[in-house]
Design a protein around this nucleic acid. Structure first.
Lengths: 241, 241
DNA sequence: GCGCTAAGTTACCGAGTGGTAATATAATTA
DNA sequence: TAATTATATTACCACTCGGTAACTTAGCGC
C-alpha cells in the first residue's frame, strides 16, 4: 500500500507491467484500468488522511497538509473526494466495515456463541489496531452532517447490537457465563476494545490478537471453558478446535 | 451551580446576605468577596465550555458561541482565562482530578484491595458521567501545547498506574482474582469506564454507581467474593484468604 | 465625592482554511 | 494528427475565528 502517490512524474509506462498484471486486468479493457488507478489513488487519499487525522486530529489537519503528504496540491484532492467531510466519512466507514466484516463472519458460522464472539472480538481488535482504529472512539457527530452522522450511527448500532446478540446467545446456549445485563456487558467489551486505540502501538509487545484473547479471558469468555476455569493457576489457553 | 452569570445587572446588594453568609465569609474581608465572585465566574466559564465542548466539540465551539451561552461578549472571557487552550486544559484537569480524588481516597483506606478498587471505580464512573467526563476519552495532545499536553499525560498516567497498583495489590492479598496481566486488566477496566462517556445519559435507567458495580461484577471483581463466585454457578476458583 | 481598579463592550485585525475558477498538460479515442 | 477527457496546477476568494486595542462603566477604598 503506497502512501505517496507521487503523481505525474514517475508514472510507470503503459506497457511495462506485463508480469504483475492482476488476473481481472485485461489489455482489452483499458478504461477499467483507468478507473482502477483512480480508485487506488482515492484509497491513498483516505488512508493518508486516516493516519494524519489519527495523530494530528481532524481539525488540525488541513487539506493542504494532506495534499503535501501525498505529494500533490490541494485541488487535486477534489478529483477524488467531494469535500473534507467525505474524507472523514470514508475513514469512519472503512474502520467500521472491518468490524462488521467480523460480525458477518461470525453470523455465518454455526460454532457455539462463545467462539463466534471470539471471532468478532479478534477482528474488532485488529480493526482498532489498524490505521482506521480511531474511528470508533471519535464522536460520530460533531464533525459530520446529520445524514452522514446518522449513517455512521447506524453502523455503530449494528455493531453494538451484534455484540449484545452474541452475548445473549452465549448465555442461552451455555457456552459463556450468563451476563445479567447483556447490554452492559457489550458496552464494557466494546469500551475495552475501543480504548486500545489510545494505548496500543503495533510495535509493542502484544499483538492485536493477544490483546483480544486477553480481554476475552478477563471477561470470563476465555477460548475454552476449561482454559477459562484454569486461568487462575497459570495454565494457558488451548484454543480453536 | 448557575450556568449563566448574567453579570452586572442583578448583582445582589452588598449588605443583604446577613443570613446566608457562609462561615469563612466575613464582612471584614471584602476584597476576598471580590476574588470569590471572580472565581465563581471563572468556574462558570469552564463548566459551560465543558458542556458545549461535549456536545459540539472543541473546534466547533467558537469563543463567541461560548460567550453567547454565558450572556457576555468574547473579550470578557479573556478576563478569566488566558486563551481558548487554557479552557480546554482546565476541563481536562477538572475531569481528571475527580478520578484522582477517588484514587487518593482509596489509598488512604486500609480496606482490602478489592474494596479500594471499588471505591476508585465508582468515583471513576461518577466522573465520566459528569460534565467533564468526555475529557478522559478525548485525545490529550492534538489540541494542547506540549507543556499542557504532557501535564495531562502525567495525570492520566497517574490514574493508570493507580489502577494497576490496586489490581496487583488485589492479586497479592487475594481479595480479587489474580489477573495474569495487570496492565491489560487496567486498560480493559479503564476502557470500559471511559466508554461510558459515549453512551451514558444521566436520565437513563442506570445510575453511575450501578454501572460501576456492574463492571466490577463483569470483571470478576464483584462487591463480595461470594457474589462473584456465584456467577458461574459455583464451579471454579477458591480465592481470597 | 474622588481616584483607582476590575469588568465589559465595540470595533477590528490577521492568519488559516475550505473550496473554486481558470488554465495547462498528459493520456485516450477517433 | 485532431478532438476530447482525465488529471493536476496556480491563483484566488470568502469566511471564520482567535486574539487585541481602545474605550466605557460599575464598584470600592480613601
Amino acid at each position: 500500500m503506497s502512501r505517496k502517490t507521487s503523481a505525474s512524474k514517475q508514472r510507470r509506462s503503459t506497457r511495462a507491467p506485463l508480469a504483475n498484471a492482476a488476473p481481472p486486468e485485461s489489455p482489452w479493457s483499458r478504461p477499467r484500468r483507468r478507473a482502477q488507478e483512480r480508485e487506488i489513488k482515492r484509497d491513498a487519499v483516505i488512508l493518508t488522511a486516516a493516519r494524519a487525522f489519527q495523530q494530528r486530529g481532524y481539525h488540525n489537519t488541513s487539506l493542504d497538509d494532506l495534499a503535501g503528504l501525498l505529494g500533490v496540491t490541494k485541488p487535486t484532492l477534489y478529483h477524488y473526494v467531494r469535500n473534507k467531510e467525505e474524507i472523514l466519512f470514508e475513514c469512519f466507514r472503512t474502520g467500521l466495515d472491518q468490524i462488521r466484516t467480523g460480525l458477518r463472519e461470525a453470523d455465518a458460522s454455526d460454532a457455539p456463541a462463545r467462539e463466534r464472539l471470539a471471532i468478532v472480538v479478534r477482528q474488532y481488535a485488529a480493526a482498532i489496531a489498524s490505521d482506521f482504529g480511531w474511528c470508533m472512539v471519535r464522536a460520530e457527530d460533531q464533525d459530520l452532517s446529520i445524514e452522514m452522522s446518522s449513517a455512521i450511527k447506524a453502523l455503530k448500532s449494528e455493531i453494538d447490537q451484534g455484540l449484545r446478540r452474541l452475548i445473549r446467545a452465549g448465555s442461552a446456549d451455555g457456552s459463556i457465563a450468563a451476563a445479567q445485563d447483556p447490554k452492559l456487558a457489550a458496552f464494557a467489551l466494546a469500551g475495552a476494545l475501543n480504548w486500545m486505540g489510545h494505548w496500543y502501538r503495533p510495535d509493542a509487545a502484544l499483538t492485536a490478537d493477544q490483546v483480544a484473547d486477553g480481554f476475552l479471558e478477563l471477561f470470563g469468555l476465555g477460548p475454552t471453558p476449561k482454559a477459562h476455569r484454569a486461568r487462575y493457576n497459570g495454565a494457558s489457553k488451548r484454543l480453536s478446535q
